[in-house]
Design a protein around this nucleic acid. Structure first.
Lengths: 334, 334
DNA sequence: CGCCATGATTGAATCGTTTCGGTTTAATTG
DNA sequence: CAATTAAACCGAAACGATTCAATCATGGCG
């Protein structure tokens, strides 16, 4: 049932080496033999064994993708982009989800090394750098996604979070808002920290007041809970900017439950522009990040690096996020 | 850099076979040699090569999971469940997303065969059965997810869609609704067909009237669009039941935009109970499906089948979905 | 017609493991 | 103390592909 290249060779009456050539450098085999081999393969239903291939050739054509939370639509899109690109280039994508658990991350990294992946795509968490060092020691090319590499020896595809934070506040200011609630995640997450820097920078420029709120995890439920604090806070906030859409959706629900009107009572902005934001009960204004493109480009870059070896030039690509205006924001009525 | 079992052996002063035993049947090697090997492995930073392992042993410890739409939170959860279970049992999960495109599905199946997966988890689409037949011919165990296997030679883990459709209508009837809009996806999808059967069956029992609506794809946008038809239809529908949550969320948005109140003007029920439903602006009543469990159990079953070979008994497991009541439904006010 | 260059084909060696029959060592027994 | 047995260990062969030096055909050219 499991046919080998040898079976094909003997059926087509050629040497195994020729079959291998047919598979890998078809131009080197003559038309006639090509035909013979083709039909032998078809008759035997032969499919090459990737493991044997990899073992002998030394290159695995498998790239690993390690994400912290596959449940977050942002990463789902990243994975889709990376998967499609890998597939188009005849690479296999091995998707691992660490659920933000360092133990799981460790285990996945081990598996990826066992599989001898030729490259790794990873969104490093704060603690996740130990495992990456291990990969480095083994000379496995690694590309960061959504986090800028600090070394020039390392590629990354990330977003300009400072710019994103800044442009949201700038936009709100242009609508006339002067007191804004800023709901951020843990500052230990690089993205959160940068967005906050952008927020504060713009606040100074535009002369608006920022009320900071914190959330431990960036999920909907956390937004729902923190909304109470915003409502109870004495300040007369007129706009709310959340560090991601999940949190914003949670805030939105809490506000509506409390009889608030969006965007009249509060303007609301999220971040990521996940699919659900456009179809929320009140479509959410958001800072869009091209997640699919991030994944696709990162995959393309790691493939280039794998294939071009030493002469590959590492790049740190930074995209600018884009403000997408929807129904959850409008000019402040005096 | 890439150390082999041979390097370990020579450094620990033992034979390669002994190192292999250490790796696979540690009980067979004496305490003293075990220690030597352990430290050799640590010093060399040795990690076994999965490809070589697989090639020689013949069994790959890789299971494939082919889903039609990884963007749908239902499948994301399935994948998470399957991935965790695989991981716990030292299997590797190869996740493939076909985006409901037969071409992509075909290509993924090819890759999975090249990888010589030891088992496949799949949610077969209407057309996707050709590829599965190919897997069968190669004696690769296959387990269906969210679709009952028609053959007793095949395992499956699925949901009782008839029951789900039925219980939603029954519940709405108990609230006093007698005219219900039923928004279904394509009947060519088995799940949709069964749910509709359940709906109609219950309608007859409870003596309520069903207005059928159709949607081509089961995404939020489609729900948003079909809502207009519901509003324009002459009948005095008081409740709306959608074949999945994404569609229901789209309907919800359209209704709110048109000034309708939920649940007073319309009661609304979805299906799947994805995470976003609980945190929608108006939390959605839904028919919950244990997606994570589905994936986890399917993975466990295929692992059992792989490991127990012939003496494995195929099972068709069917879960009953569960009604989860939230704010989007309430008793009809006369 | 012989010589060469070129292109096509061959097949043995190899990748890093597991497997398994054979050998060594140590302990037990009569 | 020789014989027996069991536990550890050894190491060559094999898994299915790729590689590459060597060989074979073919045709062009002087």
């Amino acid at each position: 049932m499991a046919n080998s290249i040898r079976d094909v060779a003997s059926r087509a009456q050629v040497a195994v080496g020729t079959v291998s050539n047919f598979l890998n450098r078809p131009d080197r085999v003559a038309e006639a033999t090509r035909k013979k081999i083709e039909s032998a393969i078809a008759e035997l239903n032969f499919v090459p064994n990737a493991s044997a291939r990899h073992l002998r050739s030394g290159s695995s054509r498998t790239i690993g993708l390690l994400v912290p939370d596959i449940t977050n639509p942002f990463f789902t899109e990243v994975a889709r982009g990376a998967g499609d690109t890998a597939s188009e280039n005849d690479y296999t994508l091995l998707l691992c989800n660490s659920d933000e658990d360092p133990k799981k991350e460790e285990r996945h990294l081990k598996v990826l090394i066992e599989q001898r992946i030729c490259g790794l795509l990873i969104t490093p968490s704060f603690e996740g750098l130990a495992g990456v060092a291990e990969l480095n020691r083994r000379n496995i090319p690694t590309t960061f996604i959504d986090r800028k590499a600090e070394s020039l020896e390392q590629s990354s595809v990330s977003m300009d979070d400072f710019y994103g934070g800044k442009s949201a506040v700038k936009y709100l200011a242009s609508l006339g808002h002067t007191s804004i609630a800023w709901v951020n995640g843990p500052l230990s997450i690089a993205q959160c920290a940068s967005r906050e820097d952008g927020v504060m920078d713009s606040a100074k420029e535009q002369n608006v007041k920022i009320n900071k709120f914190q959330v431990n995890q960036m999920r909907s439920q956390n937004g729902y809970e923190v909304a109470k604090n915003i409502l109870e806070s004495s300040s007369q906030v007129t706009a709310i900017f959340c560090a991601n859409d999940l949190v914003a959706l949670g805030v939105l629900r809490a506000l509506l439950e409390n009889g608030k009107k969006i965007p009249t009572d509060y303007a609301l902005i999220g971040y990521d522009d996940i699919g659900f934001s456009a179809s929320a009960s009140i479509p959410l204004t958001s800072i869009a990040q091209p997640a699919y493109k991030l994944g696709a480009l990162a995959a393309q870059m790691i493939i280039n690096e794998v294939e071009n070896g030493k002469k590959f030039k590492h790049e740190q690509i930074v995209f600018k996020p884009e403000l997408v205006i929807r129904a959850s924001t409008q000019a402040l009525r005096k």
